[in-house]
Each structure stands twice: as structure tokens, then as C-alpha cells.
């Protein structure tokens, strides 16, 4: 099978994720969309690895997974504490980062 198809899939997944980040307000959903984007990238890396015949892309994919796991831990903690203080998981309610 042509590996380029995997790239198309990765692009599709990334776009879905990006759209989700941009239009959804629920922090959990936004968060899941980010995961989707990361995994789209992973897919692209692995595909490139296959296409070029070396292992660099696969290694980076592993790195991404590790970072994503760490990110999930921190991100979920933030979301939980946000929910506790504001009783809502909407990202629009957390708009304090402005001057």
C-alpha cells in the first residue's frame, strides 16, 4: 500500500484536531483534540520513517508519546483545579491571561 495514504490520514486527523481546538469550548474536548493532533503528528513521523527507511521518525514518535503523557498529567490537573474553582470546564471562562 502506498505510504502516502497514511500521510493523507495524518493530515485529516490533524485538521480535525485543529478545528476542534479552535471551535470547541469544553476544555476536556479541546484537550482531546490536542491529543488527536499529536497523534496525527506521530502517524506522520512513523510514515516518514518508513518512507525514508531510517528510524529517526519512530524515535521522535516515542518522544512525542512521552511528552504527551506528561502533558496529559499536567493538563488534566489544571482542568480539574479550574473546574473546582469556577465550576465550569469552559475555556472561555478562564480568560484571565490578559493585561
Amino acid at each position: 500500500m502506498n505510504p502516502v495514504n497514511y500521510l493523507y490520514l495524518a493530515a485529516l486527523l490533524f485538521t480535525i484536531g485543529a478545528t476542534g481546538v479552535l471551535i470547541r469550548r469544553n476544555a476536556i474536548v479541546v484537550f482531546m483534540c490536542i491529543e488527536l493532533m499529536l497523534n496525527a503528528c506521530n502517524l506522520a513521523f512513523v510514515t516518514f520513517s518508513r518512507m525514508h527507511g531510517n528510524l529517526d521518525g519512530q524515535i521522535i514518535a516515542f518522544f512525542t508519546m512521552v511528552v504527551a503523557a506528561a502533558e496529559v498529567v499536567v493538563g488534566l490537573a489544571i482542568i480539574v483545579s479550574l473546574f473546582r474553582t469556577r465550576h465550569s470546564a469552559s475555556v472561555d471562562d478562564a480568560s484571565l491571561m490578559k493585561l
Partner: peptide, 17 residues
């Protein structure tokens, strides 16, 4: 310029994209 910083994560994300 600081009015651009409205605090909404999505608008930051839009500018990133």
C-alpha cells in the same frame, strides 16, 4: 496592541495556526 491579548485560548490558537 495589548487589546489583541483578549485572554481566550482559542483566539491565541487561531493566531498560532
Amino acid at each position: 496592541l495589548r487589546r489583541l491579548q483578549n485572554g481566550y485560548a482559542r483566539s491565541y490558537a487561531v493566531s498560532m495556526f
